[in-house]
């Protein structure tokens, strides 16, 4: 736990041997794998925020698309990292991404079919009004 707090604080206040501003400058001018991972993590967090807080079921589906896209970004970033460090033909991450896109398309089609059926029966798209299974 102590290690967690100090490492997280170190992100804000870095005590690297080369100096804090130098580290930030290199990080901004030469973004590496970790920057892509942080961007993907933030996209994921925004998607989870949408799922947890919005009432409109269509916006919730859009947030799920955001979450899946964050995973795709991670896969592509790691594929590029593997191309740079090891095998120059490493495209396994890109193949995985194709399957994620397929699953996302299928999920959107089924989900939106559900929304239409739901709207026809309950006349609402707000998730807190759809409480038939709530005990």
């Amino acid at each position: 736990m102590n290690n967690f707090i100090s490492s997280t604080l170190a992100l804000v206040w870095q005590e690297a041997p080369v100096g804090r501003w130098q580290t930030i400058k290199v990080g901004v001018l030469e973004p590496d794998l970790s920057k892509f991972l942080v961007i993907a993590a933030l996209l994921f967090v925004i998607g989870v925020a949408g799922v947890l807080t919005r009432r409109n079921i269509i916006v919730i589906f859009m947030s799920i698309e955001l979450i899946l896209n964050a995973a795709n970004l991670n896969f592509i970033a790691f594929a590029r990292y593997l191309q740079d460090t090891g095998n120059l033909n490493a495209v396994a991450g890109q193949v995985f991404t194709i399957f994620i896109i397929v699953v996302a398309a299928a999920e959107a089609a089924i989900g939106l079919g559900l929304v239409i059926a739901l709207y026809r029966n309950k006349e609402t798209i707000f998730v807190d009004k759809i409480d038939l299974l709530k005990w």
Binding site: F4, S7, T8, A10, L11, S34, L37, V38, A41, L42, F44, V45, V48, A49, L52
Partner: peptide, 14 residues
Amino acid sequence: FLVLLSLGFIYAIR
């Protein structure tokens, strides 16, 4: 929850 989640993510990535 999301603030804790993002702090955890940043820690893990780092």
